[in-house]
Design a protein around this nucleic acid. Structure first.
Lengths: 189, 189
DNA sequence: CCCGAATCGTTGTATTTCCAACACATTGTA
DNA sequence: TACAATGTGTTGGAAATACAACGATTCGGG
């Protein structure tokens, strides 16, 4: 919360690196992108890259997380609780995010990307659960968040596998009633 | 020539400041633009501004000089010597530059702008004269450059005053024959 | 197999940029 | 007039970035 505002220089530099990376991703596969490519494109020193990121995989994680968060537009959800509408919006955000990813080439890193998506979802669901559950059931809420994130992600896998002719909205809506009873149940637990 | 390449940080920062200034110029008059405005817009620290520029007037000079130089696209001219074609191109560049300026508000600084234009022209003409005169008549060439810069600038003033219905091309072309004899003469001098 | 070129990740030092504070000038306003 | 608010130009010290160099690793070609 009260983190003293970050130095404008790091904001600039991170932005430059991220943009360079996203830019390169649309031209090359991930495996062909070098740190040198990125720093050259971003017009920053290579040593500076390592000041901000452990390595290129660290950058991949953070870049994808950020893009995903922008897709999710989380401020909306964190305020309100979990309900049918928010589930639909989140599901649409994920399928949309994966569509933008398909334009880039991250072959061989599907598992990494899947993990990143689930982790982000988990954080968001946890915050939402905290909002609507004042009591101190933190551990239970964490587990619930994990399950929700895996569930939603799994739904997106299923949708891509053999239901792409159905709109994401329709697809997830059909399952929501059953999801919601599950949520209610976990709340009572 | 051999100036050891400048630190990428200063390139970035100067660019940010210039862009912020050009941006603000299209919204406010120059007299209403503060250093704080610029540094805020450019997202750099105010102290950093003074690391690069003496004050806002210094920025005005350098920004205008740069925009003018871009308009002039000088690399073309410096290679070749002075001739009818280069005169026409330079004249068109000046009138064009002044047209872009008229969209911004620099009221009360017309004299400053005029001086900047003449100074830039003088530098360019001097380089061109050096190219086509190998002998060591540097002082004479400098004077010639001064005269040419004033002359061309004066022509642009005259054009704006009561010949705007004529295209800049036509306007300057009509005078070129007489200009060129003047140049030939100074070369013989 | 070895070699050379390129990238990686790290380090020490120089330079740039940030930040907070200062005295001073200007401006609006009570 | 006084006085609050805002901008100017400067300073010293902290933090971020640049740069050059290093050994280690990877990879493709001879």
């Amino acid at each position: 919360m009260s983190q003293s505002k970050t130095d404008p220089r790091v904001v600039r530099t991170r932005k430059l690196i991220m943009e360079a990376f996203v830019d390169l991703s649309s031209k090359k596969e991930f495996k062909d992108i070098t740190v040198k490519d990125i720093t050259t494109e971003a017009m920053i020193n290579r040593a500076t890259f390592y000041y901000h990121f452990e390595d290129i995989y660290d950058l991949l994680e953070k870049a994808l997380s950020e893009v995903l968060l922008i897709n999710l537009d989380c401020h909306n959800f964190e305020e309100n609780g979990i309900n049918g509408d928010s589930i639909v919006l989140i599901f649409k955000a994920i399928t949309n995010f994966q569509k933008t990813l398909s334009n880039r080439c991250h072959r061989g890193y599907e598992d990494t990307i899947a993990r990143i998506i689930r982790e982000q979802l988990e954080v968001i669901f946890y915050k939402m659960l905290l909002k609507q559950n004042t009591e101190e059931e933190n551990e239970a809420l964490k587990i619930a968040a994990v399950m929700l994130s895996w569930g939603i992600y799994g739904a997106s896998v299923e949708w891509r596998r053999n239901s792409r002719e159905i709109l994401p909205d329709e697809f997830i809506k059909s399952a929501i009633p059953y999801m919601m009873t599950g949520i209610k149940f976990s709340k009572l637990g």
